[in-house]
Nucleic acid binder design. Structure first.
Length: 490
RNA sequence: UCCAGCUUAGCUCAGUCGGUAGAGCAGGCGGCUGUUAACCGCCGGGUCGCAGGUUCGAGUCCUGCAGCUGGAGCCA
């Protein structure tokens, strides 16, 4: 689909590089376009991903950023000197190979190059650290700058790209205006989470944990608005679902209610999944993702009140105990050549009874979300466990009009949101009840002071969404350079 | 912060009852005309995380520390 701009060094003359040119030797191509050049001679530039040899034949897998093309070097075609050189190339040598394109004799739909010329652009100065066998998580994360080259990481990153594009297309297509929220904030948006503190010209400032409050201001200005950017949490979380720096998209809509927010979240997730299925089948195949599970993500999603969910969790826990007491299976990815880390066995959690008023634990979310093929929308939580800005349910003031969307297959919360408190007096009382500094929220209260309006929105965590759609065991593989409790480099 | 597990070659791991270090990959050399993490033969490669203890003797047992991994809490 997208085609990268070609750097200047690749340029002979633009006209000579057109795919329809039958001009041999000057047609540059990419591995993903080889099928359009059968019978022609093209040049590929890339890196040696792996090679095998069979006496008078070398098989080079050339990785060019788009895909990996099999290239066959025959002693008969290139002569003894070039043949020997081709056999001695180290992994990740950058090179240019020129040859005729043909269909792969054994793999339908795969095209290979019968090499006539091979030029080394840059030979590695040391053996490439990531060999084609298994590696551990720590080693791979230490070499993240190189790990990105691997087939599996390439596939994940391209799915992430498509998800990010789908997010923008969805909101842009529905007349939302992009309103960027600040990264530096003077105080905790929600007053609860642990934030990263910085020195802002002599006064403390915090890295944002949410753009939501700013989006409420944007909703009053634009009707429908969203922000999309990095978000920071300083909690010392060490789990497969947490990063210190992650990306979040936060739409906010004027004149809507909880039902409207849920309908938007539902359409949004369906749009993202459909887009990935439309454009990233090859990448999902590399990841050995069961696409039937994604194809099942269709409207309507299961909607369940918190009160019903508590009963459901209690039932599921009892069922599990009866079935042998095993903890719910954690999401795992198939182990592949690049050493996909296996999820460790779940430690059985200390099981205290879940009573009405408690928030769900991670295990409860897993239990619930494994139960259904579609995401599950759990709504109307106890107000006591939710943020101060959530609007109370008029029919039961113990409840807040919030919703969490749990992704299927045990992935848990990918969206959190709801309807906001739009009554100035109630909001000011909530700020006082949470012991928050009223002056810091004066501008936020202004939104209710000058033409208040019912409104709501949600936040979607990009990395958790990528992990779910790719069925990855850990969010650290969903972002190019993860920032975690014990990971600040590369 | 708490709980559990792990730490042996560049990488992934094995190492029995406490008796003095082993495989695969990567690297080097050689072989093979359709390989798919190719395969076959040969070669080089070790401060067994660190500190202390028990013992005639510790990779192995004990104590402490460090690092990592997973989980809890918090959350997207």
């Amino acid at each position: 689909m997208e085609r990268a701009a070609r750097p200047a060094v690749e340029r002979p003359a633009p006209a000579a590089r057109r795919a329809n040119s039958h001009d041999v030797m000057t047609t540059f191509s990419t591995s993903s376009e080889l099928g359009r050049h059968v019978g022609q001679t093209v040049t590929l530039r890339g890196w040696l991903y792996n090679s095998r040899s069979s006496g008078k034949l070398h098989f080079l897998e050339v990785r060019d950023g788009h895909g990996i093309a099999p290239c066959v070097v025959s002693l008969r075609d290139v002569g003894e000197e070039a043949f020997r050189a081709a056999g001695g190339l180290a992994q990740e040598t950058s090179l240019a190979v020129t040859g005729a394109v043909s269909a792969h004799p054994k793999r339908p739909g795969v095209f290979e190059l019968q090499v006539k010329e091979l030029a080394v652009i840059g030979a590695p100065r040391a053996p490439y650290p990531i060999s084609p066998k298994d590696h551990g998580v720590e080693f791979l994360m230490d070499h993240r700058h190189l790990w990105l080259r691997s087939r599996r990481q390439h596939a994940i990153t391209r799915v992430r790209h498509t998800i990010v594009k789908a997010i923008r297309d969805f909101f842009d297509g529905r007349d939302f205006t992009l309103v960027d929220a600040p990264i530096f904030t003077p105080n905790a948006c929600e007053g609860t989470s642990t934030l990263f503190e910085t020195d802002y010209h002599g006064q403390p400032a915090y890295l944002t944990q949410s753009g939501q409050l700013y989006m409420e201001a944007a909703a009053a200005a634009f009707g429908k608005a969203y922000c999309f950017g990095p978000t920071f949490r300083a909690e010392k979380s060490k789990t497969r679902r947490h990063l210190s720096e992650f990306w979040m998209v936060e739409p906010e809509v004027a004149f809507t209610d909880l039902e409207g927010v849920m309908a938007l979240a539902e359409d949004f997730l369906c749009f993202i999944v459909e887009r990935v299925l439309e454009t990233r089948r090859p990448e999902l195949a590399v990841l050995e993702r069961d696409v039937a599970k994604l194809e099942a993500v269709k409207k309507p999603f299961t909607r369940m009140s918190y009160t019903d969910a508590v009963a459901e969790v209690a039932r599921l826990r009892a069922e599990r105990t009866a079935a042998g007491g095993a903890a719910p299976a954690a999401p795992t990815a198939p182990a592949t050549g690049e050493g996909a880390p296996e999820a460790a066995d779940e430690a059985p959690a200390v099981e205290r009874e879940l009573v009405w008023g408690d928030d769900f634990g991670a295990e409860d979310e897993t239990l619930l979300s494994q139960r259904y093929d579609t995401p599950v929308m759990v709504h109307r939580y106890p107000a006591a466990v939710k943020a101060f800005y959530m609007k109370k349910d008029a029919t039961d003031p113990r409840l807040a009009l919030g919703v969490d969307v749990l992704a299927p297959e045990g992935y848990g919360e990918v969206i959190g949101g709801g309807q906001r408190e739009d009554d100035l007096d109630v909001l000011e009382a909530a700020i006082a009840a949470h012991a928050l500094p009223p002056e810091a929220f004066r501008w936020y209260c202004d939104l209710r002071r000058y033409g208040s309006f019912p409104h709501g929105g949600f936040g979607l965590g990009v990395e958790r969404t990528v992990a779910w759609i790719c069925k990855l065991p850990h969010v650290r593989e969903t972002i190019p350079f993860a920032r975690m409790l014990h990971r600040l480099s590369p």
